[in-house]
Write a protein that binds this DNA or RNA. Structure first.
Length: 469
DNA sequence: TTTTGAGTTGTTCGA
DNA sequence: GTCGAACAACTCAAA
């Protein structure tokens, strides 16, 4: 074959790209194509920060391709129609793409003729991790045991040195990104992804070796912060997993090994939730567990707005929500605390929160996001028991002991003494004055009493369970 | 088919 | 302050 299209979707990388490698193998010339799909980009599940991260990533990818004698062809419209047009213009005989597993991607891809899907999105794709009877796992731990027992993936591939020049094809310029707040701490692109990975796993004192101890500390940078890059495939799951396995093998001691193993498990969780969404696509609309379909949620728009805007009066929740709004990212522990507060304290339907997170998170991934929300709601696979309700003050003290995190995102708490920083409403009046933080003026009073809200949630969940029986 | 052990991330209470 | 049990049964996975 003379020419094939390499259709880029969620694999914005040149290294370890099996679709690109297959395209280079199959033809003399490869045309890299990305189609801006209005069905995705204009959807209510995508927000401006994630679009900006994508556009910047496309610009970087184009630049990386130009260094290799190629360039990115960018189109906008219905992918099937645009790809047909590019194929006709270039005389391409096939389209190669990395397989994606979301319901939308599968439906979209089914309408593209001459499409050859190639692995690479996951180390072990849906269908390859199954129980003895052939059905999919719905519990993480046995899933992970089987996943780890499968043959190791081959070594990650380097980027090709040269991508044969494509014929001249009409291409849009990559649109100027919408204004991007300077606080966004995620430069886009494959180079940055690799830099972060190296920084996370290199050396005997690499952060990954402290991961088991530090990953829950919201005041520290203990996590890899690779999620936006994994989401768009600027780094492959295989590259990350290989790095985790190498780190385990090279761990200088047992504690370090535990850190690397914990991180590997987080990577496997990502794959687990892709499998779950693949096998159970209804989770996007409904509880995974039928026995919790009937929770009587509070359809309370003003409480939701307070949560969204970081004005609940609980510092750990408000800091988390402001970190999200200002940076497009939130620490994983903070995600659980914020989600638990919306679901259990405000008794608001988890789908409201799931949608807002999808709109705002740079790493917003339908599988991982849905899995996380259903886990917190207790409605999902392998979910938390319903009576497990996070205490926003206890969580703050435990995972932000000095209050550094809440002060960073809530400057109004800057001078609040440490013992009150996670429960500022308990400050006596004179302490409020001295700290320059008067409750109700500088920082809100709690919008709900946690102890009362906890009982309300337990009642609502018990009631839903009883109704089923 | 039946049985058995196990199950990401918490909190509260009482000893 | 620290510790284990209770929370509430249920479903899953595998023998």
């Amino acid at each position: 074959m003379k020419t094939v299209l390499w259709w880029i979707r969620r694999d914005l990388r040149l290294a370890d790209n099996q679709a690109l490698a297959a395209a280079l193998n199959a033809a003399e010339r490869v045309v890299p194509v990305f189609v801006l799909d209005p069905a995705l980009l204009a959807s209510e599940r995508v927000g401006p920060l994630r679009v900006a991260f994508l556009l910047e990533g496309l610009r970087r990818l184009d630049s990386d391709l130009r260094q290799r004698g190629s360039r990115l062809v960018l189109r906008r419209g219905d992918p099937a129609a645009e790809l047909s047009a590019v194929a006709a213009e270039t005389g391409a005989g096939a389209i190669l793409a990395e397989e994606d597993f979301t319901p939308y991607a599968r439906q979209r891809d089914s309408r593209v003729p001459s499409l050859q899907l190639v692995g690479g999105r996951l180390v072990h794709p849906p269908g390859s991790v199954r129980k003895a009877d052939g059905t999919p796992y719905v519990v993480y731990t046995p899933f992970s045991r089987t996943w780890k027992g499968l043959p190791q993936p081959g070594a990650a591939m380097p980027a090709p040195a040269h991508v044969p020049t494509a014929p001249q094809v009409a291409s849009l310029p990559v649109p100027d990104q919408p204004e991007r707040p300077p606080a966004i701490p995620f430069p886009s692109g494959e180079t940055e992804a690799q830099r972060r990975l190296a920084a996370f796993v290199t050396g005997d004192d690499a952060p990954v070796y402290r991961y088991a101890q530090t990953r829950d500390r919201v005041d520290l940078d203990g996590t890899s912060q690779l999620s936006p890059y994994l989401h768009l495939g600027m780094i492959s799951s295989r590259q990350a997993v290989a790095a985790a396995l190498d780190a385990i093998a090279a761990a200088p001691n047992a504690a370090a090994r535990e850190g690397a193993e914990t991180w590997l498990n987080e990577l496997i969780w990502r794959e687990f939730y892709v499998h779950i969404l693949y096998h159970f696509p209804h989770v996007l609309e409904q509880s995974f567990r039928a026995n919790l379909q009937e929770i009587r949620w509070q359809d309370d728009a003003s409480s939701f707005a307070a949560w969204r805007d970081g004005c609940t009066g609980y510092p750990i929740v408000d800091a988390a929500m402001r970190q999200l709004a200002q940076t497009g990212w939130m620490h994983n522990r903070a995600r659980m605390v914020a989600a638990s507060f919306l679901i259990k304290d405000l008794l608001i339907d988890w789908r409201w929160g799931e949608r807002y997170f999808m709109q705002t998170l740079i790493d917003g991934d339908s599988a991982a996001n849905n899995g996380g929300w259903q886990w917190t709601a207790g409605t999902g696979t392998d979910a938390a028991p319903y009576f497990r309700v996070f205490h926003p003050v206890a969580q703050g003290r435990k995972h932000d002991p000095q209050g550094t995190y809440v002060r960073r995102w809530l400057p109004e708490l800057g001078r609040v003494p440490e013992r009150f920083v996670h429960q500022p409403w308990k400050m006596p009046d004179d302490v409020q004055q001295a700290a320059g933080c008067v409750i109700g003026r500088d920082y809100p009073a709690p919008i709900v009493d946690h102890a009362w809200a906890r009982e309300r949630a337990l009642d609502a969940y018990r009631h839903a369970r009883r109704n089923l029986a």
